Simulated scan of single mutants.
Amino acid sequence: MNEIAVGAHAPDFTLTTDSGDVLSLAACRGRKLVLYFYPKAGTSGCTVEAHDFNRLKADFDAAETRVVGISPDPDKALAKFRLKQGLTFDLAGDETHAMLEAYGVWGEKSMYGHKYMGVERTTVLIDRDGKIARIWPKVKVAGHADEVLAAAQAL
């Protein structure tokens, strides 16, 4: 896995969102950006995390911060998840894992002795200039979105 660091330029990316729009780091310059990486749309932890970020969307907007959820899911699955959960922010899928690898969140995981490749739940706050302002590795969902909002408001 690659490693990213606070203060470094965020790795560039271009993805398609669940609504079919093109999302890139360059297009987000001038505004803060929260990328929250999660394992799989529709699972319990990912649903709770999505609802927490959605609940705070107006506050993130007021802090001039865009929130985007990133997973390895296909766009069709993300669109279904977004609609079913009533989410008001973008989701993007990285089926090739190129962006997930560039941000250091794709790697070997283990559950019940079984090893597999997957996403390590991580959130990255990027400043207006495209530099990494904060990284939350191995995220615990409870209270996380509130903590990210506070950091975005302080930036």
Rank of each mutant, 00 (worst) to 15 (best):
residue 134 R to W: 05
residue 133 A to R: 14
residue 49 E to F: 08
residue 99 M to V: 15
residue 146 D to I: 00
residue 128 R to Q: 11
residue 120 E to Q: 14
residue 19 S to D: 14
residue 87 L to E: 11
residue 130 G to I: 07
residue 73 D to E: 05
residue 45 G to F: 05
residue 27 A to N: 10
residue 39 P to K: 04
residue 151 A to Q: 10
residue 127 D to R: 05
residue 4 I to N: 05
residue 53 F to D: 12
residue 2 N to D: 12
residue 123 T to N: 09
residue 77 A to F: 11
residue 33 L to N: 04
residue 26 A to R: 10
residue 31 R to L: 00
residue 114 H to T: 14
residue 96 T to N: 09
residue 11 P to W: 12
residue 87 L to V: 03
residue 25 L to V: 09
residue 121 R to E: 01
residue 2 N to V: 14
residue 30 G to F: 08
residue 132 I to T: 03
residue 37 F to H: 00
residue 80 K to N: 06
residue 102 A to R: 14
residue 146 D to P: 01
residue 50 A to H: 02
residue 102 A to N: 12
residue 2 N to M: 12
residue 41 A to Y: 09
residue 37 F to L: 00
residue 115 K to W: 03
residue 39 P to A: 01
residue 139 V to I: 12
residue 135 I to R: 04
residue 50 A to Q: 07
residue 153 Q to E: 12
residue 81 F to R: 04
residue 111 M to G: 01
residue 61 D to R: 02
residue 15 L to M: 11
residue 67 V to K: 00
residue 34 V to E: 07
residue 112 Y to C: 03
residue 96 T to I: 05
residue 57 K to V: 11
residue 125 L to W: 01
residue 135 I to A: 04
residue 61 D to W: 00
residue 128 R to L: 03
residue 87 L to C: 08
residue 54 N to C: 07
residue 152 A to F: 07
residue 111 M to D: 06
residue 42 G to K: 06
residue 146 D to E: 15
residue 136 W to R: 02
residue 150 A to N: 04
residue 32 K to D: 04
residue 61 D to T: 06
residue 43 T to H: 07
residue 40 K to C: 02
residue 88 T to P: 03
residue 96 T to R: 12
residue 17 T to A: 11
residue 96 T to L: 07
residue 22 V to F: 10
residue 93 G to A: 10
residue 148 V to N: 02
residue 96 T to P: 03
residue 130 G to F: 01
residue 100 L to G: 03
residue 10 A to H: 08
residue 19 S to R: 11
residue 64 E to H: 07
residue 115 K to Y: 02
residue 58 A to G: 05
residue 77 A to S: 14
residue 111 M to E: 11
residue 58 A to N: 10
residue 85 Q to A: 13
residue 5 A to K: 15
residue 141 V to M: 03
residue 155 L to G: 14
residue 90 D to E: 14
residue 134 R to D: 09
residue 87 L to N: 06
residue 25 L to T: 06
residue 101 E to H: 09
residue 23 L to G: 07
residue 137 P to V: 04
residue 38 Y to A: 01
residue 85 Q to G: 00
residue 32 K to M: 10
residue 100 L to H: 11
residue 123 T to I: 08
residue 93 G to W: 13
residue 41 A to S: 12
residue 119 V to E: 09
residue 154 A to Q: 14
residue 47 T to L: 06
residue 150 A to D: 12
residue 5 A to W: 01
residue 50 A to N: 08
residue 70 I to F: 07
residue 142 A to K: 15
residue 129 D to F: 05
residue 2 N to E: 14
residue 92 A to P: 00
residue 89 F to T: 01
residue 51 H to C: 13
residue 20 G to P: 10
residue 146 D to Q: 15
residue 91 L to I: 13
residue 104 G to A: 12
residue 56 L to R: 02
residue 129 D to G: 13
residue 150 A to R: 09
